[in-house]
Nucleic acid binder design. Structure first.
Lengths: 214, 214
DNA sequence: CCATTAATGTACCATTCAGTTAAAATCAAT
DNA sequence: ATTGATTTTAACTGAATGGTACATTAATGG
């Protein structure tokens, strides 16, 4: 018996390995935060090894930064699929709110990553040049709605697109991010199916009334 | 020279020591989160030693739980000072929104602790029997407003106190919790003094319009 | 087919950190 | 005075964890 220390055979596939690591890291970071995440645990979630994490990503913090970037990129590109240009302004606004509300609920891990990044005071986002490029698209849609609404007189001019986006985001984000503390402190019925339908409609109405010209 | 290993004189004051530890821990946990916080660093922030932390609080997680409880207790008691019963319902509602918006801004560490606890999915809040007792008071005020408003016909009956509280909280909380990511992604002008005044007014209007009977 | 570089596997190291131990000193109450 | 609770000091432990060293295999170009 020649003792060949059995070593796995493998194909070279850098992109797949990196994508696999990013996906595993995204889950681990979303679950436990930057400091709570364990590199060994990320490695265990991959088809490869810890060695490769450091080979491709340098260190834990760089990996985290790239996970963040990837998450933003993915979410913004999904949002881009929404076409609102064919609807009257206030209808478009309602559709945007509904979409955002639903989309946030469906992307809890993205919400969690953003929460975590805010606990870190946005330090890593600030270091990422990509973010500044990818995010404005979220504003542009609402700017278009406001511009059309002011032209046809349906939307008031003393409320800015940024403010409307802030209000939509606040409700949609908080609904996911704080449902644990809110549910424990108050009423879990808000987070049942019916409760969520009501909050969704409440958010729509609140945003539309804030935008509508009287 | 007799070498007396100099040792501090001290008063026995268990409560002060515990309060000092809790305050130090609150800062460290708010700054770095549960996993990011360092017990040695908490000790360094106190007038006493790491030994005493374990003497009184057992372990890091128990300390964290008590920090959370203390933070909720403090915030709710500050809120309790607000008296709205003498105002007409919609005026009371406006005052409540303004107060909440301002209060959240003024208590960033509380916001941070709640964010952190939500990253942990509310696990520690759920274990704390105190929370269930201290929080309903926040709802009662708004229930009173709604009851009076339905009696005098100023507030609609198809929107619940919980929903209104959710909307007020969402805007006020998000405004503090997400200002880093939001500011980086979009526009920092929302977080200047003028910007905050506008968001505060936007929130008031949105909530009041959501509540007002047409 | 050989040399070289990129990619991967395995084992290990160094440090950090929550929690402990031990002993003594001091306080407060009886 | 005795006693138990509180506080100080300071070193220590053991596990967890971020990061590396070094060997090995795959692909590539000549």
């Amino acid at each position: 018996m020649t003792e060949t220390p059995t070593r796995k055979k493998w194909k070279q596939d850098p992109e797949a390995v990196q994508a696999n690591i990013l996906a595993a890291a995204a889950e681990e970071f979303a679950e436990h935060g930057l400091t709570g995440a364990r590199v060994d645990e990320i490695a265990a979630r991959t088809r490869t090894s810890k060695r490769m994490i450091y080979y491709y990503f340098g260190d834990k913090e760089s990996l985290y930064r790239q996970v963040l970037e990837e998450a933003y990129r993915k979410v913004r590109s999904e949002e881009a699929a929404l076409d609102l240009t064919s609807l009257p302004p206030l209808d478009a606004l309602r559709k945007l709110v509904e979409f955002t509300f639903d989309h946030h609920r469906a992307n809890e891990n993205f919400i969690r990553l953003v929460m975590i990044e805010n606990v870190h005071k946005g330090k890593h986002l600030a270091e990422s040049p990509l973010i500044a490029r990818v995010n404005p698209s979220a504003i542009e849609r609402i700017e278009d709605i406001c511009a059309r609404g002011q032209k046809d007189g349906s939307i008031r001019s003393d409320v800015s697109p940024h403010e409307l986006h802030w209000l939509i985001s606040a409700a949609s984000f908080f609904n996911v991010s704080n449902r644990f503390s809110f549910g424990i402190s108050f009423n879990k019925t808000l987070f049942t199916h019916d409760g969520q339908q009501k909050l969704r409609e409440l958010t729509c109405k609140a945003v539309i009334e804030a935008a509508r010209k009287p």
